[in-house]
Amino acid sequence: MSKPGPTENLAIFLAHSVALEEEAAEQHDELADMMDVHHNTEVAAVFRKLAHYSRLHAQEVREHAQGQELPRFAPWEFDWGEQSSPEAGGIDGAHYLMTTRHALRLAMKNERRAYDFYHLISQNSPDPEVRDLAAEFAEEEKGHMDLLEKWLEATPDSANEARFDMDPPHVPE
């Protein structure tokens, strides 16, 4: 027997949406902490701002859920359609020498995955209330992508876009 996915009903959809935003905020905080450790404060500030926005969106989702009992899922029980939460999965390109532009492109990739997640639900849910709310959330994610695009346009290219690591990790051969 398969477990119900986020398209099945509003409570399950909202539980997934809260988790998506909370995991995104946690990941942004972790990346900010990593950047702080390596004295990359400019990029750390970008990730802290993104974490703040994710928390605001999580609060909006909770407001939609007021008066409802949301189901609880273990982390491995969420149905993301892939292995990890859409907004918290794509960090494989993160590194301690990343620039602000690199951080914004990474965030854009994750926002695109969140948009795709919500858009797919808005097209495929059998529940009209879920479809409508998923479409609204997809539009919010599109707005986040537009904001990140404006930030990218306002961030000058860095001469050190591909920074040289003078002390790379030593990997045994």
Rank of each mutant, 00 (worst) to 15 (best):
P6L: 08
T7A: 15
T7C: 05
E8T: 04
N9V: 11
A11I: 04
F13N: 13
L14S: 06
A19F: 05
E22F: 07
D29W: 06
H38T: 05
H52I: 02
R55F: 13
R55P: 04
H57Q: 15
H57W: 09
A58P: 10
A58K: 11
Q68W: 15
Q68G: 03
E69N: 12
F73Q: 12
P75Y: 07
W76N: 15
S84H: 13
P86Y: 07
A88V: 09
A88N: 12
I91L: 02
A94C: 06
A94L: 09
H95T: 05
Y96S: 08
T99A: 00
L104C: 04
L106I: 07
E111Q: 11
R112Y: 08
Y115I: 00
Y115K: 01
D116S: 07
D116G: 02
F117A: 02
F117R: 00
Y118E: 01
Y118I: 01
S125E: 04
P126I: 14
P126T: 10
E129G: 10
E129Y: 08
V130E: 03
R131C: 11
A134G: 02
E136M: 11
E136K: 13
E141Q: 14
H144E: 07
M145R: 03
M145C: 07
L147N: 06
W151P: 00
W151A: 03
L152I: 04
E153N: 09
D157R: 03
S158H: 14
N160M: 13
A162H: 14
F164D: 10
D165S: 02
D165F: 02
D165C: 09
M166S: 09
D167M: 03
D167L: 13
P169W: 00
V171N: 02
